[in-house]
Structure formats: C-alpha cells, structure tokens
C-alpha cells in the first residue's frame, strides 16, 4: 500500500520535474514555474512546492509565500467537472438563488468547492457575461442559458452519476 502511494508520489515528482525543466522562456521564475505546473496538473500539490524550491535553489517557504499570495493557485485537486452557477444581478433576479440551492442539494455540499467524491467542483460566477440568457450555468465552461431549476438539478445528477 505504502509502496503504491510512494510510487504515485514519485510519478508526480517526475512529471513536475519534466515541466520545470521544459520551460524555455527567457525568464524562468518561481511564479512561471508554478503557473506551468498548474497548467499541467490543474493544481499545486505539495510536491510542486518542494520541487519548485529545489529547482529554484530556494526554500519551500519562499515558494509557498508566492503561491499563497495569488488566489488563482489551488492546492487541492479540482473535481473532474466544473459546475459554475452565475449569481450576477440578472441571474439573481431570474432565480439563481433557487437553482444554487437545488444544485447544492444534488451535489451534497453547502458551499463552493469539490464534492466528496471529487467528481464536481462547484463555483459561483459573479457574471458569466450572458445576461440576456439569464439564468445561466456553465458546465466545463460550456454555457447553458434560460435554464430551469429542474434542468440544473438534472445536469448535476448526470455529472455525479
């Protein structure tokens, strides 16, 4: 068991090292390294911090101080799918609140973030830019407009299946 876990960790390390060494832009920084890793892994695991520190000849804390400053970096794996619900003014007026409530019930969470099984990441969108289509949701960045609460719940159920 422990062996499998450590093998998986080793694989992640190798993957990160490949990313770090593959940077060919003129200026390689801690920030550029972290961005590249997140592009590939979609988050920054502990190993990303450690390997970036070793790569940049600095300490994990220096890297953490950069990584934790930017809200765009995430440190836990995202869900397999993202489910965005717009709660901008237009969508709010058109009932986004009820949609949000139903979707959260379906996903079994009461906040933003990942479901327990890691299948879906729920995000609140301040405005997805399609107010004429309100209420709007976006599943894996595909917009769906003028939706009903039932439809939103059905989409959530399908993702969780």
């Amino acid at each position: 068991m422990a062996n499998e876990a450590s093998k998986a960790a080793d694989d992640v390390r190798t993957q990160i090292q490949t990313v770090l060494n593959g940077q060919n832009q003129p200026t390689v920084t801690v920030l550029s390294s972290l961005l590249e890793i997140q592009d590939v892994l979609h988050y920054l695991p502990n190993e990303a911090i450690e390997e970036t520190a070793a790569f940049s000849k600095t300490t994990i804390n220096e890297v953490w101080s950069v990584a934790s400053f930017y809200t765009n970096f995430r440190f836990t794996p995202p869900g397999d799918h993202t489910y965005e619900i717009c709660w901008g003014p237009s969508c709010h007026v058109m009932g986004a609140q009820q949609i949000l409530k139903r979707v959260q019930d379906e996903l079994g969470i009461d906040r933003e973030g990942e479901t327990e099984d890691g299948k879906v990441t729920l995000k609140y969108g301040t405005c997805l830019g399609a107010c004429a289509q309100a209420p709007v949701i976006a599943i894996d960045h595909h917009h769906k407009g003028k939706i009903t609460t039932e439809f939103a719940a059905k989409m959530a159920r399908e993702l969780m299946a």
């Binding site: 502990n46 911090i49 300490t59 994990i60 804390n61 220096e62 953490w64 934790s68 440190f75």
Partner: peptide, 28 residues
Amino acid sequence: FDTALTLTSRSGTALVGTSHGTSLLESG
C-alpha cells in the same frame, strides 16, 4: 538566511507561517 518562516497569503488574511502550515522540522 533560513526562511523557515514566511509571509503567507495576502491583504486581510496575510499571516506568518510555513509552507502548507507544515512543522518547523521540515521547513528548514
């Protein structure tokens, strides 16, 4: 020159800490 402690996060939630809140034993 150890950087065993660092400034984490920013603005209102900025705080002193270590990478991932880890123990000082591994933070250098």
